[in-house]
Design a protein around this nucleic acid. Structure first.
Lengths: 140, 140
DNA sequence: TGTGATTGTCAGGCTAGCTGACAGTCAGGT
DNA sequence: ACCTGACTGTCAGCTAGCCTGACAATCACA
């Protein structure tokens, strides 16, 4: 392994992300969802019922991307789109009962995957790593 | 921002990677290369002259991906492919003089970008973050 | 009323990466 | 010397993920 490369942040972040993504998706496959879909379920479960655009903004994706994401989740009966009576341009997107179950199981699964992924670090180092990442990503 | 989401490792890693990638590419654009291409230059500069396949392995990409990457870099006159006299199946890939200059400038630029990216962390926390990432990604 | 903004949707394009095939070349056994 | 199998670079074609630009329906407000 090239020593120069493994000290470049870009390389390390890319490969860390890719590796965690692969492991998460493999584990989540048993529940019939992937990491991106689980993230949508999480967003929809927190806070008030959201329009598609609000959900997209919270997740940090484009609203046109959210359309396809919800198409899949709706087809799996994990979320439901209903027209907002107060603003007929909007859809209110909510978890179904099956969606809430998938959310719980998915979170448990990815918790376990994260723990294994961070296993090379001490408990303390893992916490610091998480904190540093959050400080870098979450504004202010 | 959804509090649940910002404590998921997958979300944080993905957005950290994406943000650093965008900043690096913006800064590197002045030198006519992007982050992926710089990574190839780094790989080629470290260790002995490599075949395309060795370079691909060191970089962690597929050999078919390396073909396209080198096509671009060769067209920019930053690398040169020459047939290996000891094994005519192989190409020996090396940096040109312009490639070495681009490498130096690119590394300097991304060093600066990395520093800005890690600015929210203390010097000490940034070092620990780097170390943790390396421990997670680099095998053994 | 009507003018501009907003929402969900879709078509099309782009990037990055993979798989599978191919010709050319090498190595080892017979 | 030959043959079989493995390896190298290359290309075509596919997929996933994401974006831009357009559109109709709807809203807000002068």
């Amino acid at each position: 392994m090239s020593p120069e490369l493994t000290s470049r942040l870009g390389y390390l972040l890319k490969h860390a992300q890719e590796q965690l993504r692969a492991r998460s998706n493999a584990a989540l496959a048993h529940h019939g969802i992937d990491g991106r879909e689980l993230a949508v379920l999480i967003v929809l479960a927190t806070g008030e019922p959201a329009s598609q655009q609000e959900a997209a903004a919270r997740l940090g994706v484009d609203r046109t991307t959210m359309v396809a994401l919800l198409d899949v989740l709706e087809h799996k009966d994990l979320v439901a789109r209903t027209p907002d009576p107060h603003d007929r341009r909007r859809n209110v997107v909510e978890l179904t009962a099956a969606g809430r179950i998938a959310l719980q199981r998915g979170m448990k699964t990815t918790d376990e995957v994260e723990r294994e992924f961070l296993a090379p670090l001490s408990h303390r180092a893992a916490d610091q790593f998480r904190g540093a990442l959050r400080a870098l990503v979450v504004p202010d």
